[in-house]
């Protein structure tokens, strides 16, 4: 126990004498010892109450000082955390400018209006374009984390056609789907009631995370089904794949920030470990539910629900 205590203090990067968890234990020990000491002294020197009162005041003073240090360190940790979030936000915005320049310049060259490209040039520019897209997505994910941590994410609540949104995401992911020779199907089982209330850009991000994860973790010639169906006053959006699945010991951590499955390493895919964390926050804030069922080597079913729009 004491060993893990020291380790924790080392991780916080504060000296032992300012480390809240360590000081808390010290305070507890002082408390207990002093209560016993006072008890014995009071028993022996019953005719000198001043002594007992003096000791009690002294002990209280020591505890007060220790508490003061603890509170100070907590404040410092909270401030550091706030600065980290702000730093993340500033850096991310700074990086977006050159990334946008790259994107547009590549667009311009690939448009071939400045001159025809040979196949090799085209191929390399396409690679540059897709790495640029990934960079932008990563920076956007970091920006979302900083917005979540500073409570600055704002949500629109408008009717959205979930089927159309699914089709848009699938069409964006087409190159990856074709590269992995995956069969992907959208099944609309809503009888036309496919409108939900929410924020289109943010729901699209969630759908993108689900679908691109399914593609990443499904082997060649795999199958992915995107299913829309009614569930009471809610619409359920599921992405079911027959991919590698999630090991059961990792299931509790799936929606945690920066969590990356051991599968990431095994299948050498990219991922920041932010997608599902951000997704859960978005769906929670829009009044829906998010979850998954998964079996290793069989596949996964990631789903979310959102309130159906009353037309």
């Amino acid at each position: 126990m004491s060993l893990s205590l020291f380790k924790q203090c080392k991780q916080y990067n504060v000296p032992l004498l300012q480390c809240p968890s360590f000081l808390f234990v010290v305070m507890g020990l002082i408390n207990i010892t002093s209560i016993f000491t006072v008890f014995f002294i009071a028993q022996r020197y019953t005719e000198e109450p001043e002594l007992v009162v003096g000791i009690v005041i002294g002990v209280s003073l020591v505890i007060f000082i220790i508490s003061y240090v603890i509170v100070g360190t907590f404040t410092q940790l909270a401030e550091t955390n706030r600065m980290k979030t702000e730093f993340l936000n500033i850096v991310s915005h700074q990086i977006l400018t050159p990334l946008t320049s790259e994107k547009w310049l590549v667009n311009l060259l690939l448009g071939q209006k400045l001159g025809a490209l040979n196949n090799e040039q085209k191929e390399y520019l396409e690679l540059l374009k897709s790495s640029n897209t990934k960079s932008v997505q990563l920076v956007n994910a970091l920006l979302n984390v900083s917005r979540i941590e500073s409570n600055k994410m704002v949500f629109e609540k408008k009717p959205i056609d979930l089927k159309q949104l699914a089709q848009e995401v699938v069409s964006d992911e087409k190159p990856a789907i074709e590269a992995s020779k995956i069969f992907l199907q959208i099944l609309d089982q809503t009888n036309g009631k496919n409108q939900v209330i929410g924020d289109a850009m943010k729901i699209k991000l969630v759908a993108q995370n689900f679908i691109s994860n399914a593609i990443k973790y499904t082997k060649e010639n795999g199958q992915i089904m995107v299913i829309l169906k009614g569930d009471g006053g809610f619409l359920k959006f599921s992405v079911i794949d027959n991919g590698v699945g999630i090991p059961s010991e990792e299931k509790p951590f799936i929606f945690q920030k920066f969590f990356r499955s051991s599968n990431v390493m095994r299948f050498q895919t990219l991922g920041s470990g932010l997608g599902l964390y951000v997704s859960k926050y978005i769906i929670d804030m829009l009044g829906g539910k998010i979850g998954f069922e998964s079996e290793e080597n069989k596949g996964s079913d990631f789903w979310f629900t959102l309130p159906i729009a009353k037309l």
Binding site: T97, P98, T100, S101, W104, L105, N107, L108, K113, L114
Partner: peptide
């Protein structure tokens, strides 16, 4: 203020 953005979008628009 970013030169690369100015040039690329201006070019794309001029060609249209």
């Amino acid at each position: 203020d970013e030169e690369a953005l100015q040039k690329s979008l201006a070019k794309a628009l001029e060609m249209e």
